[in-house]
Simulated scan of single mutants.
Amino acid sequence: MWVDRKIHQYHIWRCLIIVVLSDLVNELKIFVRKALGNSFEHGYPHIERVLNNAYEIVDHEELDIDRNILTITVLLHDIGRLIGEPHAYYSSLFAKAYLSDRGVSSDVIDCVVNAILYHSYSYVLEHNIKPICEISKILSDADKLDALGVVGFIRVFLYGERVGRSLKETMDHFNNKILNLHKLMHYRYSREKALKLRERILEMLRYLNDELILENKV
């Protein structure tokens, strides 16, 4: 009888958490869409693509994670770009304050904050951040997949134009970072998809190189 009562209480508690997190997801989608805007590079379209990548990873790898927590993490991972760099750090501060204010448990907040910090290639290199939960690995892979393929190719040039990179600096960025992202993937599905998208990047770069050579001959 005591065991049955405890199980019943656990299910009620679990349902309440799901409802609360679901409400936060809906609230955040509205807020983040308005805050980040429609930029193809790092606006809400990027958030949607990363979210789709994350769901695909979870489904293909059959991972047992809370999708509400994953969604909240993805929605908040780039919000710090509104402040500046390091955007992962500012995003993590916002996430911690926002979730704490809404009574989310400390273990969930720790996971979300770690995932946001861990998704940033440069922040990980500088601060040696390690993943403490599965969602950290999922977000890292999902975000990096959006830097590959034709989408990634376009985003690199959009970002380079915005920050004033030269063409040589942009090409170096492809060689030094983008073309090596497949090595950082945590899951088999992510690595396989990254390698396919990497081939598209290489093909686009070959086309670009051919056209630049023709221009130089004129």
Rank of each mutant, 00 (worst) to 15 (best):
L117H: 01
E192A: 04
D210S: 11
A115Y: 02
V74E: 08
E85Y: 13
W13G: 01
D4G: 14
Y98W: 10
A194N: 12
S106W: 05
H186T: 02
D141V: 02
A147N: 08
C133A: 12
V112I: 13
V108K: 15
G160Y: 04
L197P: 01
R81Q: 14
S22I: 00
I213E: 06
D107P: 00
R200V: 15
S190E: 06
K168S: 06
N128F: 13
D141F: 02
E203P: 00
V218H: 10
Y159F: 15
T71Y: 00
N38A: 15
K6Q: 08
H87L: 10
L28E: 07
L205W: 00
I65W: 05
L51W: 05
K177L: 12
T73V: 05
K196A: 08
R162Y: 09
L167W: 05
I201A: 06
L24P: 02
K217Y: 04
G43W: 03
D66S: 11
R155P: 03
I83M: 07
I69R: 04
R188K: 13
S140Q: 01
S166Y: 07
V150T: 08
H46T: 15
N114P: 04
L21H: 00
H77I: 13
D66K: 06
H8D: 09
E203W: 12
P45V: 08
E126P: 07
R198P: 06
S166A: 04
A194S: 04
I116M: 09
K6E: 12
G160V: 08
V112P: 11
R206L: 14
Y207I: 15
K217W: 10
E41I: 08
Y55I: 01
H77D: 06
N53D: 06
L208T: 02
T71N: 10
W2H: 10
R33F: 07
G37T: 01
K34T: 00
I69S: 05
T170L: 12
I154G: 00
Y10K: 14
P45K: 09
I47F: 13
E61M: 13
E48S: 11
E56W: 00
H173F: 14
E48F: 01
N175H: 09
K6M: 13
I57P: 01
V58N: 03
L24M: 09
R49G: 02
Y207P: 00
K96H: 08
M204E: 07
N176R: 08
R191G: 04
I69T: 11
F174G: 11
K6D: 11
K196S: 08
V108F: 10
R206F: 09
D66R: 04
Y55D: 00
L212N: 09
I72E: 12
L75W: 03
G164Q: 07
E161S: 08
D172K: 11
Y123H: 12
V151A: 15
V74Y: 05
L36N: 07
N209M: 10
G37D: 01
V20T: 02
E56Y: 04
L76K: 12
H42F: 12
V104L: 02
H119C: 11
R14N: 04
E211F: 09
R102A: 14
K34N: 10
G84E: 05
R14L: 05
N26H: 00
L205C: 08
G149W: 09
V19T: 06
L181M: 10
N175Y: 03
G152I: 13
R165H: 06
D141T: 04
K183F: 08
F153N: 10
G84T: 14
Y159C: 11
E169S: 07
V104K: 04
L184S: 14
D64H: 09
